[in-house]
Nucleic acid binder design. Structure first.
Length: 658
RNA sequence: GCCGGCGUAGCUCAGUGGUAGAGCAGCUGUUUCGUAAACAGCAGGUCAUCAGUUCGAAUCUGAUCGCCGGCUCCA
């Protein structure tokens, strides 16, 4: 098992007092990275590197890379705060921790910053660094610190949170900040950096508290590394599924439909259909039974399930009818439970696995929706496994194996398992019943142990009804996103008073395992678009081959080729536009079509096609049937991951794509 | 939901108070071409929406909708 002791930021540290449970989770996440990725490291979105336990006296060269970066980023944040205070003497400053890829500092300023302000702040920072003044550590009695920061309410609040009688401070030049360090020795030790953006951020991450202005900076030890990072930012925007979705005609949005309600165009719909067909077949083989249930239900149903109490904010408001209130379902579990309940069940029938490609509607806040990855209408590859408590572990393990297999087929390699637990202090969000949490957690832990799969823990990330095992995918920038999730639920069986008849003839309560393997079609599609940069493997490509007639007289033959391909079950098109062959090739290339089949006089005479790949490779001329065999082999190989050999494990190095 | 930025043709973008522009894509015609862009012409916009300021608004102001970067939240 890969758990590594948690080392939360210390109180008094810049990064410390603000740490809410999410930030704590992020900090934790960093420490459990299981398999080191080969260079360059793409750390998680937030959290920063490990601070050294020692003081700042140790020379930088003797520290680990993570510790050096931690100090440099932290120090850069201080220098930035100094520069901002110089620009806005009335500014209040809050916290400025190092984070992955750089640092930030939060301020309350008399006016809104714009990106145009960043060069000015950067210039002032560079002046500070040139002067190469030392970072000096000192301590001060609490009372004195409270006086010193009398005009800085955020600092006062941080001091209030420190238990000691003395507080730790760092000074560089005229700038004195509440801080536990450590720092680099002098401002001149801060390496290349670039201020990247300004954004709003709540004080202490609490939406009920003031909105501050946060300035983000990127910082690495060398200009090359910084350039590399900035290059990755560009690569990420090239791969952005919203951009590719438009260019490759995968999906579209429209103001008239509303935010978070994208529409899949034929090509995007083709990919989704392929994903659905794949997973439905996997489930059929694994003994799942597929059902259809409505997307609406009475409010009563969700009161019974507990959604109304714990998940109301995520639901669209009810529709008032004459004698009842209906809501759009935010989850599918209640409906599947009613299917289970529609008849009496014997222990001999269990486990019963009820599955559905089920559409649900969630009222996501307006500021968070976008593209396909965060939507208000989503279709989940959902299933609920009703089993005996004794079967839960094996069923859970079976789901994990299905996830591993599906990911291998989809080419997803960069992910981590997260055990999402409740925040025991949050009584509003989570159902209050210690036993269901303990039992659920135990099932997950034991199953993961038997499978030998590593995971990290995240308190405060559970579903309201139980703990879950989330599969966290990482994008090219290292940002994590929950996709597949498996949950062990003892709450809903209780709420609905579910039962099966046991060997002893008495009623027993089943356990429900909720799970999504592909997860929501929308989010998985957005991830795959970015993973493959739009260049889908042949089995998923919306158009697998583009037939390109060289001149008009080859049009009939091109359509014959098209017919052969379609008869063989492939997705192909003919580019019959009045364009030169070069233009057609370019067009197919930009559309990332895997194969271009050029047909001219020679091919027509030989009933052949000249095959070019989107990588620019010329495979030469071959008979149509030979190309069809080749494509068939390619597709069946990618859809059967066992051919590539079993490869169970957590995070693996991404091979990239495109 | 909150902070900030943005919204001009299908796409990418010019246009800062005086009658709306380009390239690509589209359509039509010419060309019939051998592995990443042939040539010519045509067509295409109540400048997101609504209200206001002004003799006059794409341009200034406000509200609403949508998009983007974050925060909070999340599959």
């Amino acid at each position: 098992m890969s758990r590594i002791p948690t080392a939360l930021p210390r109180a008094g540290d810049d990064a410390g007092p603000v740490t809410g449970r999410n930030e704590a989770a992020r900090n934790q996440r960093l420490r459990i990275r299981v398999e080191p990725r080969s260079a360059p490291p793409v750390p998680a979105k937030d959290g920063g590197a490990l601070p050294s336990a020692g003081g700042s006296a140790m020379p930088l060269e003797e520290l680990s890379r993570d510790e050096r970066l931690y100090r440099m980023r932290h120090s850069a944040a201080h220098v930035m705060a100094e520069a901002v205070l110089e620009l806005f003497p009335e500014a209040q400053f809050a916290i400025g921790p190092p984070i992955d890829n750089g640092f930030y500092y939060d301020f309350l300023l008399p006016r809104a910053l714009t990106p145009e302000d960043l060069p000015e702040i950067e210039a002032r920072m560079r002046t500070r660094m040139k002067s190469n003044v030392p970072f000096e550590h000192s301590e001060m009695p609490r009372a004195e610190a409270l006086r010193h920061f009398a005009a800085q309410p955020f600092k006062l609040e941080l001091i209030e949170g420190i238990a000691d009688d003395t507080v730790s401070l760092y000074r560089q030049g005229e700038f004195l900040d509440l801080c536990e360090g450590p720092h680099v020795a002098r401002t001149g030790d801060v390496p290349p950096f670039k201020l990247t953006s300004v954004a709003g951020a709540y004080w202490r991450g609490d939406e009920k508290r003031p909105m501050l202005q946060r300035i983000y900076g990127a910082l690495f030890e060398s200009q090359d590394e910084l350039d590399d990072y900035l290059g990755r930012l560009e690569e990420a925007s090239r791969r952005d599924h919203r951009k590719l979705g438009r260019e490759l005609e995968l999906f579209t949005t429209n103001e008239l439909i509303g935010a978070g309600l994208p529409m899949l165009l034929p090509k995007g719909a083709t990919i989704r259909r392929l994903l659905e067909e794949y997973i439905l077949e996997q489930e059929r083989q694994a003994g799942y039974q597929h059902v259809y249930t409505p997307v609406l239900g009475k409010v009563e149903l969700y009161k019974t399930s507990g959604h109304w109490e714990h998940y109301k904010d995520g639901m669209f408001p009810p529709m008032q009818l004459e004698h009842e209130e209906l809501v759009l379902r935010p989850m599918n579990c209640p409906h599947h439970i009613l299917i289970y309940q529609s008849t009496l069940h014997s222990y001999r029938e269990l486990p019963i696995r009820i599955a559905e490609l089920a559409t649900m509607y969630r009222y996501e806040k307006s500021g968070v929706v976008g593209g396909l990855s965060r939507v208000r209408a989503m279709t989940l590859n959902d299933a609920h496994i009703f089993c005996t408590p004794g079967q839960a572990k094996a069923e859970f393990a079976g789901v994990m194996r299905m996830v591993e297999r599906a990911y291998r087929t989809l080419g997803i390699t960069d992910y981590a398992y997260r055990l999402s637990l409740r925040d025991p202090d949050d009584h509003e969000k989570y159902v209050q019943d210690d036993e269901i949490w303990e039992v659920g957690e135990r099932v997950i832990r034991e199953a993961m142990a038997e499978l030998g799969l590593p995971f990290y823990e995240a308190p405060g990330e559970a579903a309201f009804y139980g703990p879950k095992l989330d599969i966290q995918l990482r994008d090219i920038l290292g940002r994590e996103e929950t996709v597949s999730t498996i949950q062990v639920d003892l709450h809903l069986p209780k709420q609905f008073d579910l039962a099966y008849i046991g060997e002893d003839g008495a009623h027993h309560r089943p356990v429900i395992i909720h799970r999504g393997v592909i997860s929501t079609m929308e989010r998985m599609l957005s991830y795959l678009i970015e993973l493959y940069a739009g260049a889908f493997p042949a089995w998923l490509a919306p158009v697998q081959a583009m037939v390109i007639p060289i001149a008009d007289r080859h049009g009939d033959y091109a359509h014959e080729v098209l017919g052969e391909l379609r008869t063989a079950g492939f997705r192909a098109e003919v580019d019959a536009r009045n364009d030169r062959m070069n233009a057609k090739i370019r067009h197919a290339q930009l559309q990332k079509v895997p194969y271009m089949l050029v047909v001219g006089d020679r091919e027509q005479d030989a009933r052949a096609v000249a095959v070019r790949t989107r990588a620019g490779e010329d495979l030469g001329t071959m008979p149509i049937f030979q190309f069809i065999d080749r494509l068939r082999d390619e597709v069946s190989t990618s859809q059967d991951p066992e051919v590539a050999g079993p490869d169970v494990g957590g995070r693996r190095q991404s091979e990239g794509a495109g």
